[in-house]
Design a protein around this nucleic acid. Structure first.
Lengths: 228, 228
DNA sequence: TTCCAGATTTAGCATCGGCTAAACTGGAGT
DNA sequence: ACTCCAGTTTAGCCGATGCTAAATCTGGAA
């Protein structure tokens, strides 16, 4: 009857910092001030100041000049926000006609405003999904998050049938483009060719042949399909 | 191509002030500093300070010591928040299993976070309702709000069949109680008796006889039913 | 080993939106 | 007309979170 207790509620800024640090260092490596600043589009001194406050609150540990690491409390709070974000994205896509390229900004605001009750209602309405529309795993309410074992499309061997598991692309335009090509989670594809020097890959999809640049191919994570 | 433009976005606090002032003076009478302070649970000096800022922004007009009146811009912004609030309440009840006594707090937070797009998607999903679960009219996206002509149950003559149109009760416990009695918008009832000295009213409902205290009876607004 | 460049922190400041204490105002009642 | 109180505003403060400029540290190059 403690631990999960979010005794004093965190501000929006604090939630954003914790989520950013988790995103930069999900495995608990130190995150650099400048990386946090860049991700949140803030100045480095602003981050330094907030880091001091957060470490005083016990949400992270700060080794000056070395970076920050989330504490158990900090990690829990971060995963709570990740769960919210991904469930909100899922809900908007499933029930309110949003496309996967349009949900991020909306979720970014809503994640700070929804109650735990509402989040869990949305989860139930969705059937407690394991992943969001981008294939990113949704942490459980207890703060467990599953790994999605997958390799970048850019590294998939030619000829193997793979399933798209996750699309780690933030830009809305690129997401729309991928959706047009049918390259979304659960799609089955085969790499039919690959050009050298970081060149494009050629893909076989159910809709036919596709050519995809290396940058996008790196953002598409795939896994092998059983008995293909 | 101006007017509706919310050029610079308003802060959460500003939105709350405007909504409070609208609520206190929907018809444009002056609202008193102390009433605003009481409604928002803030100190009077805090309100004075914000009022100064808002009048500099052109959202309201302030006659010192006399009260404040929303400008057209301020009223528009306030009605936008009212629309959001009432649509969010409606959506939560219709699609996410909320009861009418539980929606207010959730909507109070969400109304500051949703995009116009999301609000309109919710409105569409609901079929563009005219009123929310409490019977309060939902302003249109253009900022028009319909009157709901209705008289307090406390003033309905004995023997007349009326329809509950609106329930102006904020307390969650009271709302739950009214729901248990079946006294929700669109219910048909008859006042079968009324005790003197601000006493309770006796009601005939489809579920049988009910007795209701004067306080609650004042919060239930009714209208006559065609040919009853 | 020394030194420099880049990263980080500290110093000092601004804005927003709260607060309390004190000063002020307007209208009700004598 | 005058007084006084309730309501309002002003003065001065605080904490959160942002910023720029200056100081400081760290690690790699020479």
């Amino acid at each position: 009857m403690n631990a999960v207790t979010p005794s004093e509620s965190l501000t929006r800024s604090v939630e954003d910092y914790l989520k950013a640090i988790y995103r930069l260092a999900p495995a608990g490596q130190p995150a650099a001030t400048s990386d946090i600043a860049h991700l949140l589009e803030l100045s480095a001194p602003s981050v330094s100041g907030m880091v001091k406050r957060l470490s005083e609150q016990g949400l992270l540990e700060h080794a000056p000049y070395r970076g920050v690491v989330l504490t158990a409390d900090g990690r829990r709070a971060a995963l709570r926000m990740v769960r919210r974000h991904r469930l909100i994205e899922s809900y908007l896509v499933a029930f309110l006609g949003y496309s996967w390229d349009a949900v991020h900004d909306e979720a970014e605001r809503l994640e700070h405003a929804v109650s735990d009750t509402l989040v869990e209602r949305m989860a139930s309405a969705l059937g407690d999904p394991a992943v969001d529309p981008h294939g990113d795993p949704i942490p459980t309410a207890d703060g467990d998050i599953a790994e999605v074992p997958a390799v970048p499309l850019a590294e998939v061997p030619v000829g193997v049938v793979v399933e798209i598991r996750r699309v780690k692309v933030a830009d809305a335009g690129r997401l729309r483009y991928l959706a047009e090509l049918g390259l979304t989670p659960r799609a089955l594809i085969t790499v039919t060719g690959r050009q050298p020097f970081d060149g494009p890959v050629t893909l076989g999809t159910v809709d036919g042949e596709r050519v995809l640049g290396a940058e996008l191919a790196r953002g598409i994570l795939c896994s092998h399909v059983e008995g293909a």
